[in-house]
């Protein structure tokens, strides 16, 4: 019996040492191991800021559960990741209805910008362009990729004139400001941008803004959404909570600004219905 007691004492001391010295380390690695990943792909912007997004979000998540941010430049790779049926996916509200596997995913959060969850797109051209018909075959710049821009143009031009501008006419550029300034400088005849992009130009460079005419305004479209598996695991639920709270935290909001958002909010039933259309 004495030897056994001695052994127990030694073992107890060992356990105590691990708890005191190694505990924080174990907690940290445990958190990292259980952190979830949010995957991101957007056809609405051509800006290559993936390195900044990855480091900024991962840096923020490091002290908030050890979650990870994974951006994609390729739509197919993003959709392939959906098949893993784990984590969260941040994507355009235009993209979501096109997902083949969307039944297994539930929209949970929606992006917010200045307390709004929608945005409009506009078609602008130089003042000399009298109407939409004059844009036949014209070079059109857009911060969205070609497929997204053609979809916007279908709304902006209407059924009778949607064929005026084809895939060959689209010039994707990184951001709205680039698109709007390109038209003024003559490298394109028209631009598809967000209404807020046009408002920004009006504030910064009124002369360039006045040189443009707004030919068409599209409908309100939902901002990007976050979807989750129908039954998310604990780590995914924890990440959803972190993302929901990010807009209330100065550091969190700074990261969301990289995505052109300032918060995420729970998605409403009305918005879910809109996504089904």
């Amino acid at each position: 019996m004495p030897p056994r007691r001695q052994f127990d004492r030694r073992r107890a001391l060992g356990v105590l040492a691990v708890v005191c010295l190694g505990g924080p380390f174990l907690r940290r690695t445990g958190a990292q191991a259980t952190g979830a990943t949010i995957h991101f792909y957007s056809p609405e912007t051509n800006i290559n800021n993936f390195g900044a997004l990855k480091s900024e979000f991962d840096g923020f998540f490091a002290s908030a559960g050890g979650h990870k941010f994974q951006p994609y430049s390729d739509r197919a790779a993003f959709e392939k990741a959906l098949a893993g049926n784990a984590g969260l996916f941040l994507l355009s509200s235009w993209h979501y209805p096109q997902l083949a596997a969307k039944a297994a995913w539930q929209p949970r959060l929606i992006g917010q910008l200045r307390e709004k969850s929608t945005q409009r797109h506009v078609l602008c051209a130089k003042q000399a362009v009298a109407n939409v018909a004059a844009l036949k075959g014209a070079r059109v710049v857009s911060a969205g990729n070609t497929a997204f821009t053609l979809s916007l143009l279908a709304d902006l031009l209407g059924p009778s004139q949607r064929t005026l501008i084809t895939e060959q006419n689209i010039l994707p550029v990184p951001k709205d400001m680039d698109a709007l300034m390109t038209v003024d400088l003559g490298a394109a005849q028209a631009a598809v941008t967000t209404e807020s992009g046009l408002d920004k130009l009006a504030k910064i460079n009124p002369k360039q803004h006045q040189a443009l005419v707004q030919l068409a305004k599209g409908p309100e479209r939902l901002l990007p959404i976050i979807i989750a598996p129908t039954q998310p695991d604990a780590a995914t639920q924890a990440l959803l909570k972190v993302l929901t709270d990010m807009g209330r935290d100065a550091e969190g909001q700074q990261r969301l600004r990289l995505l052109g958002l300032d918060a995420f909010a729970p998605i409403t039933d009305a918005q879910r219905n809109q996504l089904r259309k």
Binding site: R139, V141, L171, V173, P174, A179, T182, G186
Partner: peptide, 24 residues
């Protein structure tokens, strides 16, 4: 963006302006 612009200029070579600014 410059690569994409160049592709457009190849297609519209005859009608394009002599000098374009970078669009992005």
């Amino acid at each position: 963006t410059i690569g994409r612009q160049a592709a457009g200029l190849v297609q519209d070579h005859a009608s394009a302006q002599a000098v374009s600014t970078p669009a992005g």
